[in-house]
């Protein structure tokens, strides 16, 4: 199985750990997990090197997930990297906005590792 380098963006450190745990339980072989607590930090992390996938919360201070997505579009090294948005609120409008801005999928909290796997498998080209 391909080893993956992912970025997890959430203002809650607990939530970042929960997402990482769910990804591992879903069967992802994570070789490196980068963390950022807002969109601005995430943009800086993206500049550091190629990523296989990004998971981002929507509601965050400093720079929210939607703004992060819009800024990400201008970064060459991030082109083609699938972004999965994670939201608590279940707001259809925000999900649609995220998908329009380039997100490839979304997860609504609470989620199970099985749901994570179901959502991200199509984005990983059959490596799960």
């Amino acid at each position: 199985m391909k080893k993956l380098k992912v970025l997890i963006v959430d203002d809650s450190s607990v939530m970042r750990k929960i997402v990482e745990r769910a990804l591992r339980q879903a069967g992802l072989d994570l070789t490196e997990v980068l963390e950022a607590s807002n969109g601005a930090e995430a943009l800086a992390a993206v500049q550091k090197g190629p990523l296989d996938m990004i998971f981002s919360d929507i509601n965050m201070p400093v720079m929210d997930g939607l703004e992060f997505l819009k800024n990400l579009a201008g970064i060459d090294s991030a082109k083609g990297v699938p972004v999965v948005m994670i939201t608590t609120e279940g707001s259809e409008a925000r999900v649609v906005e995220a998908l329009s801005a380039g997100a490839k999928g979304y997860l609504r909290k609470p989620f199970t590792p099985e749901q994570v796997k179901e959502r991200i498998a199509p984005l990983l080209g059959g490596i799960l």
Partner: peptide
């Protein structure tokens, strides 16, 4: 998540 799930 409880609040978010409730309103959803």
């Amino acid at each position: 998540m409880v609040a978010g799930n409730f309103k959803a």
